[in-house]
Amino acid sequence: MSTAATTHQTKWWSGGKSPFNLEYGKLMMWYFLMSDTFTFGAFLISYGTIRFSQNFWPDPNVVFNAFPGAGHANLPLAFVSVMTFILIISSVTMVLAVHAGHNRDKKAVVKWLSWTIVGGFAFLSCQAWEWHHLITGEHAALVDGQIQLIGQTTAMNPWGQLAETSAITDALHNSSQEVLAKLVYEHDHSKSLEQLIATPKDQLISALNIAELHIREKGPVAFGGYFYGITGFHGFHVFSGVIINIVMLVMAQKDVFEKRGHYLMIEKAGLYWHFVDLVWVFVFLCFYLI
């Protein structure tokens, strides 16, 4: 099976054997991953440059504080830690799949690969929920002298600094009936939203406690583009990783690797999958922690 002469201590390559003792495809996977590192690095560094060029940047704990099914509860970092652990665990199951491949244990390969795919889908679902929540969320923000309910998009950012009380007072009078009704409704459910919309503006404004409103100014627009761009690019990697893993699963099921005599393909897919986890370490760091 192997050339016994390949020692790991070889200093200079003298020909006649594989210099790195690596199969071509696996070596090329490593170089692909290295170049992909530069792609992700460029994105993240560009984000860092823009962030360092701003006087104010939103605090991630304020932006990412929602959890599915928890309503308006303030749970900073909770959901993203679930996502992080899903990726770590799916990385571990991938290690086990690769190891089962070394042992040419088809049943274990299929089992661990399936769990890895489940982990990948779980991560993608979490990301879908998070994006949906951020885009469709309605956050009261002070925009152009009036209060608007906006979500986090690539064109709008509702996470600026806390607005000053005097500015909010003026803005309330310029705001639309619907926005005011919704603001009142958020704190007080004694009347229905339809009833509140029919209520005169002055009454709505007096029903609001300005100090309690917690209205922010517009934040830096670049936030949305970088967040969706980079987490989207990472999500695309997760997605393609899941597809590759599914292909590997089908091939393993059909005994393709068994006939070939080795499960090296699983190893290459594994490298890609670990890389996805590796990138998440830095995406997590740059967007959620600092």
């Binding site: 050339t3 390949t6 594989s18 690596l22 070394h102 080795h262």
Partner: peptide, 8 residues
């Protein structure tokens, strides 16, 4: 004979 070690 194969050029590389497939199984560690």
């Amino acid at each position: 004979p194969s050029e590389v070690t497939f199984e560690h």
